[in-house]
Computed example of a mutant assay.
Amino acid sequence: MKKWILVLIIVFNCVIMKAQYNDSTFYHVALTATGSLNETSTGNAYLLNNGLNFGIKKKDIVLNSATNWLYGKQNSLLSNNDFSSTLNFNLYKSLPHFYYWGLLNYATSYSLKINHQVQAGLGIAYNIIDKENFYVNISDGVVYDTSNLLSDTKYDTYRNSLRLQYRIKIKELILFEGSNFIQNSFAKGDDYIIRSTNKLGIQLKKWISLTTSLNYNRMNITRSENLNLTYGITLDKYF
């Protein structure tokens, strides 16, 4: 079942990438390639973090897809092999600055001890600040989580999913943005997930920037976490 969900996400990504242009539809593509390397007399480590985002905005709906792969080794031993792919939509059909959202997410993570994880959910969101160069958003909702952990433990739970998202742009030169989640299980108080991604970009041209990314993830049920600082480039295009 989980393999079919992953196939669905990949196929859907391919479909929206082939969408045709028209006067009332807007597109966004962002490709990020970052990494880090550390080599000393006693050992070495490297980390690669690559992501592809694609979005479509048409009238009252926004559709986004995001795929990310984090891979790394330390002293020739695997430290990270983490993949995630997400589809989400925003529906603007009510009060100003307020919208409904839905998502479907697939993930597998060596560092967080996850064989497979599938999440699907719905919720609401509100733009606290909604300006061109300053954006702050808070959202909340319920997601269904079915997971297969590296310990061969299989479980299902419903989670409350709370997110804080922001984007600050200074003089078309500096961009600071972040997306921070906490997902608590309704069944167990010590079963929670934290996902935090914060990026600092310095724009070289309209479509290319130097990027530093700080990512933190914790899966408390497996007592595992990772913290990664990477740097590289982002290619970003609206059309």
Rank of each mutant, 00 (worst) to 15 (best):
N38H: 04
N38K: 05
E39C: 05
E39M: 09
T40V: 12
T40H: 12
T42W: 13
G43A: 10
G43Y: 11
N44I: 00
A45H: 07
A45N: 15
L47S: 03
L47M: 10
L47G: 02
N49L: 00
N49C: 11
N50C: 12
N53F: 06
N53K: 09
K58I: 01
K58D: 08
K58R: 14
D60L: 08
D60W: 12
D60F: 12
I61S: 07
V62A: 12
V62I: 10
L63K: 12
N64Y: 04
N64E: 05
S65R: 05
S65C: 01
A66S: 14
A66F: 06
T67W: 00
W69P: 03
L70H: 03
Y71V: 06
Y71A: 09
Y71M: 00
G72R: 05
G72A: 09
K73V: 02
S76Y: 13
L78Y: 09
N80I: 01
N80T: 01
D82S: 08
D82K: 03
D82T: 00
D82R: 01
F83G: 04
F83Y: 15
F83H: 10
S84D: 09
S84R: 01
S85E: 07
S85V: 05
S85K: 02
T86F: 06
T86K: 14
L87Y: 00
N88K: 10
N88E: 04
F89C: 03
F89G: 11
N90D: 15
Y92I: 13
Y92Q: 08
K93G: 13
S94D: 15
P96K: 15
P96Y: 12
H97A: 10
F98H: 14
F98S: 13
Y99S: 15
Y100Q: 15
Y100R: 13
Y100G: 10
W101D: 09
W101Y: 15
L103W: 04
N105S: 11
Y106G: 04
Y106C: 00
Y106R: 00
A107Y: 05
T108G: 02
T108I: 01
S111W: 05
S111G: 04
S111K: 08
S111A: 15
K113S: 14
K113M: 10
K113F: 11
I114S: 07
I114L: 12
I114N: 06
N115E: 14
N115M: 03
N115Y: 11
H116K: 15
H116N: 14
Q117F: 09
V118F: 07
Q119Y: 08
Q119S: 08
L122A: 14
L122D: 04
L122G: 10
G123F: 10
I124T: 13
A125F: 04
A125L: 08
Y126R: 07
Y126T: 07
N127P: 08
I128H: 05
I128Y: 08
K131I: 07
K131E: 15
K131Q: 14
N133V: 11
N133P: 06
N133M: 09
F134H: 13
F134R: 15
Y135V: 03
